[in-house]
Amino acid sequence: MGGVVGAVRLVALVRGRVQGVGFRFWTRSRALELGLSGWARNLADGHVEVVAEGSRDACHALLAALRGPEAPGRVDAVVPSFEVPRGDLDGFVTG
């Protein structure tokens, strides 16, 4: 990211039936389409954590997709926070 004007880091906790339904891989596809770097990973409590860095507009578009009707499974809530980008992400992975 290093020095991209308007870059942000989105950290989103996704609640609902989002494990075992292809949600992380779907999220990865959306993020790559938007030019974002980061990850989506399952948490032990059943939630999915999504971390993405890129332009503010792209991060907001990913956030809208996570909340949208096309997301696999059932999304009950998405709790986002925006941070200063660290520039330490390369590609978008699932874990």
Rank of each mutant, 00 (worst) to 15 (best):
G22A: 12
L36Q: 07
A52P: 04
V5Q: 13
P85D: 01
A61R: 15
G68Y: 00
G68M: 08
V84P: 01
V5S: 09
H47K: 15
G38K: 05
R9W: 04
L43A: 12
D88Q: 14
R9K: 13
A65L: 07
G35R: 10
R17I: 02
R24Q: 08
G6I: 03
P85Y: 01
D45H: 02
G73F: 09
G6F: 01
E70P: 01
G73M: 11
G22R: 14
W26D: 03
L89A: 12
G73N: 12
G68Q: 02
R74Y: 03
G35Q: 08
V78K: 11
V75C: 07
G22W: 11
V4Y: 08
L32F: 00
E49N: 05
R28Y: 05
L63F: 09
G16K: 12
R24C: 07
R56P: 00
L66Q: 00
M1I: 13
L62K: 03
A52E: 00
V84R: 13
T94H: 13
P80H: 14
V75A: 02
R9D: 02
L32S: 01
L89I: 00
P80M: 12
R15D: 06
F82Y: 15
H47R: 15
R30T: 06
L63R: 13
V50I: 09
S29L: 15
D90K: 08
A65M: 03
P85E: 07
H60P: 00
W39R: 15
D76H: 08
D45S: 02
D57E: 15
A65I: 03
V8N: 03
D90Y: 08
R24V: 04
G95S: 15
G38P: 07
D45R: 09
R86A: 13
F92I: 10
S81Y: 00
S55E: 12
A44P: 10
D76R: 10
